[in-house]
Design a protein around this nucleic acid. Structure first.
Lengths: 150, 150
DNA sequence: ATTACTATCATGGGATTTCATGGTATTCAA
DNA sequence: TTGAATACCATGAAATCCCATGATAGTAAT
């Protein structure tokens, strides 16, 4: 499970350290790295382990082959996503176009969101997170767990 | 189930002993530690076992993917939470920013709340508990158990 | 009942490892 | 051969491990 937030340096060569916690989550034994694609919802990147893509694939295969949404997802996620493997110190090299898409400049913020994560420019995320906190506070009554506590 | 309260020392390295009976509750076999995040309801921390986060994840995945509140919750909970693993003596290292958020200074109070727990500065909790007692007294008629007697 | 023994806990200090990050060398392809 | 991508070291800071100590409570023995 991807948790917490960390801001790391993105150097001139496009190298970016993936937080150690995140590295521990991914990896299916076969491919040691992450998968990243531009979000179709804003100027940031989305990513996860190869497992996440497999889950999306399973989900899409349950949809009608000519469903507009299915085609759109396939284009938006599979076609756009890049497989980035770790170097010996746990970094990936982020392709320039992805860095540009997210407006990354010297620093990048990893946002853990459970099953997947996002990569933002620190400044962009800060203002975004502020409104998320506000929204969460206003709706906190909807966050009620069911069932008996353990 | 997290019960009772305990105040422990927070040393210069940020180490904090988790009460032994709390430790007995957490752990999913995989991860031996707790998960902690800043409450979006006040200057204190909330926490629980990894199971709690999994329950929240299940709850959120049942919501509409484009529900604004869902996205806000994901950011407020998953992104803000930290996985803190126990050392060999049952301590965790509490990140500085979390300690600051809760105004912790040398000591921290764990409050067991069943499924989850809270971490307060002892002084802040004392004044908060006072008003909570008052509130409980005024609402005691609402404390009626359902179901079969034990 | 009092005392001695033992186990569990919380806590402190020092040593060690991991992490993020910068730099240099090397390989590969255009 | 020139650029880009990749592999290989170096370093400081932070996190983690390991051992030692004191306190408390519970148990057993006298």
């Amino acid at each position: 499970m991807f948790l917490s937030t960390a801001t790391n340096a993105l150097d001139a060569k496009g190298r970016l350290s993936v937080p150690a916690d995140f590295r521990a989550v991914v990896g299916d034994g076969n491919f040691d790295g992450i998968v990243v694609w531009p979000s179709f919802d804003g100027a940031y990147l989305e990513g996860g382990g190869i497992r996440l893509l497999q889950d999306y694939q399973a989900l899409l295969e349950g949809m009608d082959p000519y469903d507009e949404a299915r085609i759109a997802f396939e284009r938006a996620i599979f076609a756009e996503s890049r497989r980035l493997s770790f170097d010996s110190t746990g970094r990936v090299t982020l392709p320039k176009d992805l860095a540009e898409y997210a407006g990354l400049n010297g620093r990048a913020t990893f946002i853990g969101l459970g099953r997947r994560f996002e990569i933002w420019s620190p400044e962009a995320y800060e203002s975004h997170a502020e409104s998320a906190r506000k929204m969460a506070r206003e709706n906190r009554h909807r966050l009620r767990l069911q069932g008996r506590p353990q």
